[in-house]
């Protein structure tokens, strides 16, 4: 039996392949032979070569305006050919692309997956549901499978045997779309690692009272990204892109530090699968403590500066 072709939809940021894409490439190798698909007018060959070190046998480059999910799905459908598995990073836009591609190809889909395996010729995935209080294993019964995988759930590792990464340009017919994009206003990327990919997330909620200085400082010290609760983004204390939760970004960092966040079910849904959870809250009855590995009942205005000072002191002593 020859290994299944596993097409991986490549994500680019400022022209560079993102880390979640390398995570997906790593996962793809365990399922079959990875083929990278890049939807971009302009692609740096050095990036293609790097995809090879993660095992890409081929890099297929597709040019054309694919801003609308229906067009991206049409491009992907042509570029992946008869690949048995299509892997992508789980984002809101990719879920739409996955749904379109599935309608067009009859593939079964799992989004927000935390892992995938090939078992008896079919893909089985794992996910967490109900605010990460349940683990679910799903078998994709159809011949073709589409899996959208969450960042930070597979460790990105280069392949022992690099792939050839033979680059080819695929020409596709893009269908006319009913929708038209009237305008696109780029959102400046926050400094540092993007929230969804960060190994550490330090979040502040209503308890910050609008002052994010300490939260930002802590994130800096721990090399993490800054998150927030919806109450904080609704107040306009911090921009919407920082919101963690069921309707914001879902994060699964190695460490999640919640400061002045009560731990409402909507918030927990976006962070409860994190590796280690730590909370600082003045209310001993805050629900966030129920899901914390370590908690400090106290004022974040006292606790954070002391913790930062101690960490810095220990580092200097090393």
């Amino acid at each position: 039996m020859t290994a299944a072709t596993v097409a991986v939809l490549v994500e680019l940021r400022d022209g560079a392949v993102t880390r979640p894409t390398y995570e997906a490439m790593t996962l793809a190798r365990s399922l079959g032979t990875p083929v990278a698909v890049v939807l971009a007018d302009d692609f740096d060959p050095a990036e293609g070569a790097r995809l090879g070190t993660y095992g890409a046998a081929e890099v297929r480059i597709v040019a054309g305006d694919v801003r609308l999910p229906s067009r991206a799905a049409a491009a992907l459908k042509q570029a992946v050919g008869d690949a048995a598995v299509v892997l992508m990073v789980s984002t809101f836009v990719n879920k739409e692309i996955a749904a379109r591609l599935a309608v067009a190809t009859g593939a079964g889909v799992v989004v927000d997956a935390a892992g995938a395996e090939m078992i008896d010729g079919r893909v089985e995935t794992t996910q967490t549901v109900f605010a990460a209080t349940w683990n679910v294993r799903t078998r994709i019964e159809s011949e073709r499978a589409i899996v959208a995988i969450r960042p930070n759930t597979t460790m990105a590792e280069p392949a022992e045997v690099p792939g050839v990464a033979a680059e080819s340009v695929v020409t596709v017919d893009l269908p006319a779309a009913r929708e038209s994009v009237v305008s696109v206003e780029p959102v400046p990327a926050p400094e540092g690692v993007p929230l969804a990919e960060a190994p550490v997330v330090v979040s502040g909620g209503r308890g910050t009272n609008g002052d994010y200085t300490l939260v930002r400082r802590m994130a800096e010290v721990l090399g993490g990204a800054v998150g927030a609760s919806r109450d904080a983004t609704d107040e306009g204390w911090i921009s919407h892109e920082h919101m963690v939760g069921q309707t914001g970004t879902t994060v699964t960092p190695a460490l999640y530090l919640a400061c002045g966040i009560s731990g409402a079910v909507h918030h927990r849904g976006g962070m409860q699968a994190s590796g280690t959870i730590v909370a600082v809250n003045i209310d001993p009855d805050a629900p966030i403590f129920e899901i914390s590995d370590f908690g400090v009942v106290g004022d974040l205005g006292d606790v954070l500066p002391q913790a930062i000072a101690r960490i810095e002191e220990r580092r200097r002593a090393r």
Binding site: V278, V296, V297, G298, P305, Q306
Partner: peptide, 19 residues
Amino acid sequence: RQIVTDTGDGGNQLADFLL
């Protein structure tokens, strides 16, 4: 799970846990 109450060194305890 470990929950401590800050009585003046909660920050240090937090730092130690992380370290």
